[in-house]
Design a protein around this nucleic acid. Structure first.
Length: 588
DNA sequence: TGTCATTGGT
């Protein structure tokens, strides 16, 4: 091959590395064509990469075609590869179409490459065309093509086609198995993924094990996750970052935080994914204070938070009422120009709503470009909590008008809003519409909302009728709501019936607090020691009440006894006070 | 020169 003079090549290579305007590229292209550099393969590869990253697929294809003396599949494959990596992977398929129309210059490597682009833009129609062409031209027997087809069919939710491809293969390698397992995981078919793993007749590789770990985490298969951990340790002394992160997240999802912490501490290198897994895990396990501590440690280590970790941190702030910390994060998002996607927006709405800043919650909510059901739920929950029943109902109507389908949480929030604002008729109507209009089957929590709504409005008998006709067994929350209703209306007789159920079935300290509340409201002081001895007999201990306050941006938890009157727990404290007093009287 | 892998909110 004739090599171009080295200085000219250097100049051209430099020019190709610059982001050029089309006009000046034309000049560079002239130089390329006239200098003989086009016979230098490495320059041609650079040209192909340059074209795909800066021009339309048609212009890139035809420019490359003009430049080549002999058509070369490798260079067209480079075009396809680079287009696949851009934000418009469809362009890769356009290049493939031109290749097919010209009737030359594709090879067997073209098929996996262009199928990968289809997987990226979910082009099932395009993938089927490629499948047909590969069959016709005899490329289907290539294991790379087969594996790529399994992948693309799986990602386009055509699991049956992926399975058929897999079954038709005469020889399957570890990639074939990994492809099918990973598409099962992506499609939420975690059980299928694990069953495929158990059927594997070749040794799994690291990638396979990562997919299997994800499946274990999602269905809480802790023991299998642990055995994969053992398998990994046998093969590598130190876990790589992706494998370590997958392992860590498996323990997190299985809520085995001690093991998760151990993996976390042993990881020699941590990235933002590592920190995110631990923080979101702690939030899910209701350890929000620890989550904020880890977040502060993450910042101290110099790791920059991103748009994925921040919703979890905001959620921790929301559940602790750590408004200052949440506000700081909101400012940080604006300062660092972090994309305010639907996750971040929803987490901010939730934070402000839970902390009682409804105006801010509404501001953020209305500023969101895209809202999903969870965004509306966060707002509705906030409105419910702060007794804006009518406003919540109008937002509910608005949500439905936008075409979004409410889910079960939407109804819990909206029924709760009715309950807190005493909107009985509206609540009844909403409850009836759940299944009828929105295809959402009422769960026990929805019955709980209705019992609460009716009970708070003094309709104890109607609430009890509803409990009796429920399609499921009433749980402790339902009876708790009934007892509260009895307390409000002073219906001791009905409460006795309910207590009968409770004494037999439940051992929850909250119910006993409610019971004592009823006795106290009816001045039945004599029954309280009976209650207390029943608690002792059933081995029930009252969990200490707790509250959290924020000081200098840090959340601090206080147990009962450490501070005198944590306002949120005032009612429980009062009851405990009554119980203690009664004990003192008994003792005298 | 081609096929498979990690983190998110009510």
């Amino acid at each position: 091959m004739t090599r171009a003079s080295s200085p000219l090549k250097t100049i051209l290579v430099t020019l190709l590395q610059e982001p050029l305007k089309v006009q000046s590229f034309a000049q560079v292209h002239c130089l390329l064509l006239t200098s003989g550099v086009t016979q230098d393969f490495s320059v041609l590869v650079m040209l192909a990469e340059f074209l795909a990253s800066s021009q339309s697929p048609s212009s890139a294809y035809f420019t490359l075609k003009q430049t080549l003396i002999f058509p070369n599949p490798f260079l067209f494959n480079s075009l396809i590869t680079v287009f696949t990596q851009t934000s418009s992977p469809q362009s890769a398929f356009v290049v493939y179409k031109y290749l097919v129309c010209d009737g030359f210059s594709e090879d067997k490597s073209t098929y996996p490459l262009v199928l990968k682009s289809c997987a990226k833009f979910s082009g099932i129609k395009e993938a089927r065309q490629i499948h047909a062409a590969a069959t016709k031209l005899g490329f289907l027997s290539d294991i790379y093509v087969q594996n790529a087809l399994i992948h693309v069919y799986g990602l386009c939710n055509c699991y049956q086609d992926a399975g058929i491809m897999f079954d038709q293969m005469l020889v399957r390698d570890v990639i074939s198995w990994s492809c099918l397992i990973s598409v099962c995981v992506k499609g939420g078919l975690f059980g299928d993924a694990l069953s495929l793993f158990s059927q594997m007749d070749v040794d799994p590789n690291i990638t396979t094990l990562v997919s299997v770990l994800v499946a274990c985490g999602r269905i809480g298969e802790l023991s299998m996750g642990r055995s994969i951990h053992g398998l990994l340790l046998k093969n590598a002394a130190i876990l790589g970052l992706i494998v370590g992160n997958a392992l860590l997240d498996m323990y997190v999802k299985c809520e085995s935080m001690d093991e998760a912490r151990k993996v976390f501490e042993d990881l020699p290198v941590k990235d933002v994914v590592t920190w995110t897994s631990v923080i979101s895990g702690l939030v899910q396990c209701k350890q929000s204070r620890e989550a904020l501590d880890v977040f502060h440690a993450m910042q101290a280590s110099g790791m920059e938070p991103d748009k994925v970790v921040l919703p979890s941190v905001l959620s921790a702030c929301a559940s602790l009422g750590a408004l200052d910390c949440g506000r700081w994060i909101h400012q940080y998002i604006e300062w660092k120009d972090i994309e305010q996607d639907v996750h971040i927006g929803t987490a901010l709405v939730d934070l402000y709503a839970k902390c009682g800043c409804l105006e801010m919650a509404l501001n953020v909510f209305h500023g969101m470009i895209y809202k999903n059901v969870l965004s509306w739920n966060a707002l509705l929950g906030g409105l419910a909590m702060h007794e804006h029943g009518k406003v919540a109902l109008s937002y509910f109507d608005w949500m439905v008008r936008t075409g979004l389908k409410p889910n079960d949480v939407t109804f819990i929030a909206t029924l709760g809003a009715c309950s807190h604002s005493g909107l009985v008729e509206e609540g009844r109507h909403l409850f009836a519409s759940m299944l009828e209009l929105y295809d959402v089957t009422p769960k026990i929590a929805h019955y709980g909302c209705m019992v609460d709504l009716l009970g708070r409005s003094g309709l104890v008998e109607e609430a009890y009728e509803l409990v009796k006709t429920m399609p499921m067994r009433p749980d402790v929350l339902i009876w708790g709501a009934m007892l509260s209703a009895c307390k409000t209306s002073g219906n001791v007789q009905l409460s006795q019936q309910i207590i009968g159920h409770l004494e037999l079935e439940f051992s929850d300290s909250g119910v006993f607090v409610l019971l004592s509340n009823i006795y106290a409201a009816n001045e039945r002081w004599g029954d309280i020691p009976m209650l207390r001895s029943l608690m002792r007999k059933k081995g029930i201990k009252k969990e200490p009440g707790s509250s959290v306050i924020e000081l200098d941006g840090r959340a601090h938890e206080f147990l009962v006894g450490e501070i005198k009157y944590p306002d949120q727990k005032e009612e429980i404290l009062m009851i405990l006070y009554i119980l203690e007093k009664q004990m003192q009287i008994d003792g005298q």
